[in-house]
């Protein structure tokens, strides 16, 4: 049984093939990175998993179940959480509210009980805050708990977004360029957290990344993409030193010489 699998993913926009016949497998409990130059189709893979785009061919499987025909909001329900390349937080609410919103799929109340704010709803709200507090503790967000997201610095917003995804208690966590825009120190923190997420919380991570140093630091295995096609995949050391990958990033050797 495979944990998460992509089989022959193909999608085109107009005449442009964004992804063609891409296949890979993510093992449970590992950190798997997708790398590639701009426009290689990395984020497109995430948007396909999230069902924001319809696949032309191929399918995704989570624990051998085909998940490429479900509705976008059901992706969260089966245990896949994600962050976005350009932060997509709920800007006008507090950090706490964002973290509680991440737990939306555990909502058991309905409009009627909520209007009356029954003791059950109150208990649910308190439980939500307890869980949010664990995440605040984990990501060291104590100082920002009550602050509105819009007033927070960029690095903190990124962390809050990671926290919101963790609040969903996912099986698989998709991180879209988690280190972009972070300074060296923030990126260090992030790589520690990602290790903790893997080791302590047992969440499998699939990430898209530009920063090679960061990829080398955190990931177990890597897939390299260029122009929507797989160049190579394997352990991070092998892939990062692969001649084709070097070529995709640095251009032809002749041109340099």
């Amino acid at each position: 049984m495979s944990f998460f699998r992509a089989e022959d993913i193909t999608i085109s926009f107009g005449g442009i093939r964004a992804l063609s016949q891409v296949g890979f497998e993510v093992r449970q409990g590992e950190i798997f990175a997708i790398i590639g130059p701009n426009g290689a189709g990395k984020t497109t893979i995430f948007n396909c998993i999230n069902r924001f785009y319809d696949l032309d061919e191929g399918a995704f499987f989570l624990e051998d179940k085909d998940i490429s025909r479900i509705k976008p909001h059901e992706v969260a329900e089966i245990g896949i959480a994600r962050t976005f390349q350009n932060i997509e937080l709920f800007k006008n609410t507090t950090v706490l509210d964002n973290l509680i919103l991440g737990q939306h799929r555990s909502r058991r109340s309905n409009l009627f009980t909520e209007t009356l704010f029954t003791p059950f709803v109150r208990k649910q709200e308190i439980r939500g805050r307890e869980k949010a507090e664990e995440i605040i503790d984990f990501l060291e967000l104590e100082a920002y708990r009550e602050q509105r997201v819009i007033n927070l610095p960029y690095g903190v917003q990124k962390t809050v977004e990671l926290g919101r995804a963790l609040a969903m208690e996912p099986k698989l966590l998709l991180l879209d360029e988690p280190s972009s825009g972070l300074n060296v120190e923030e990126a260090e923190d992030l790589s520690f957290w990602m290790n903790d997420i893997k080791e302590e919380l047992g969440i499998t991570i699939l990430l898209v990344e530009h920063n090679m140093r960061f990829v080398q630091q955190v990931s177990d295995r890597v897939l390299a993409l260029d122009f929507g096609e797989v160049i190579t995949q394997g352990s991070s050391q092998d892939v990062l030193n692969h001649p084709e990958v070097m070529k995709a990033y640095l251009g032809e050797e002749d041109a340099v010489a």
Partner: peptide, 24 residues
């Protein structure tokens, strides 16, 4: 102050993110 109200605000602030949180 309950999940419905928060979901409404989430849709206002970012519909894609709301959808990725499992909000229909």
């Amino acid at each position: 102050r309950s999940p419905t109200g928060r979901a409404m605000i989430a849709i206002r602030d970012s519909e894609v993110a709301a959808e990725a949180m499992g909000i229909n």
